[in-house]
């Protein structure tokens, strides 16, 4: 990998684009992961489409306006936004190769993400307890699929973060570890972007379903 880097680094300036050889590994990895994230966002797009189509089909059951607790959603949003911000500080600490700051911001990011997940799970449990389970109506099936898929992504992100911290602890800031951390931060920011759609369309838009 370092061979590729030393080969491509001086290839700037007057060398034509077609003769510059392969791009640096960091760029290729980041771009590939970016494509994966966009395909993930397309998945969420189709779940949003399903929700938008089915949001009014409550089958006489409870509708969103009566089920959703806006204060709870605002706290969830705050948790995820704070977590996205501390993830940014986390990647800045990685760039400086500052181990203590890296662990600190990883822990804060994890805590906010876990708080978000806890709030979401307690909301799901409350709704199911009130008889608003996914089997009740098409609206609730679509709701649990969309919001649950996002929650599943957050869960996987938390697992990934824990694994990455263990890898920093055992392997240090090696280039391939730093690339993985970089992909993680992209993933985490993208989840926050999806959540903007969720809270706007699902929770705040419930009155217009």
């Amino acid at each position: 990998m370092s061979l590729v880097d030393t080969l491509t680094t001086p290839a700037e300036g007057d060398v034509p684009l077609s003769e510059r050889g392969p791009a640096a590994v960091d760029v290729v990895v980041g771009f590939g992961f970016w494509l994966f994230l966009l395909s993930d966002i397309v998945i969420f797009g189709s779940l949003f489409a399903a929700y938008a189509v089915l949001a009014g089909q409550t089958d006489g059951g409870p509708d969103g306006q009566h089920l959703f607790d806006r204060a709870n959603v605002l706290i969830e949003t705050g948790c995820l936004l704070a977590s996205s911000f501390t993830c940014g500080l986390f990647s800045l600490a990685i760039e400086r190769r500052a181990a203590a700051a890296t662990y600190l911001w990883a822990a804060v990011t994890f805590a906010f993400g876990a708080a978000f997940l806890g709030l979401e799970l307690s909301e799901f449990i409350r709704m199911i307890g009130e008889g608003a389970a996914p089997t009740r109506s098409a609206f609730l099936s679509a709701f649990f699929t969309l919001v649950g898929t996002h929650g599943l992504h957050v869960t996987l992100g938390l697992c990934w973060l824990a694994v990455m911290v263990a890898q920093i602890a055992t392997l240090g800031f090696r280039p391939h570890i730093v690339r993985r951390l970089f992909c993680f931060s992209l993933f985490w920011h993208a989840l926050d972007i999806v959540w903007i759609g969720v809270f706007t369309i699902v929770y705040l838009g419930a009155a217009y379903a």
Partner: peptide, 8 residues
Amino acid sequence: TLHDHAPG
């Protein structure tokens, strides 16, 4: 490199 950089 002048022509590419990774997102983020």
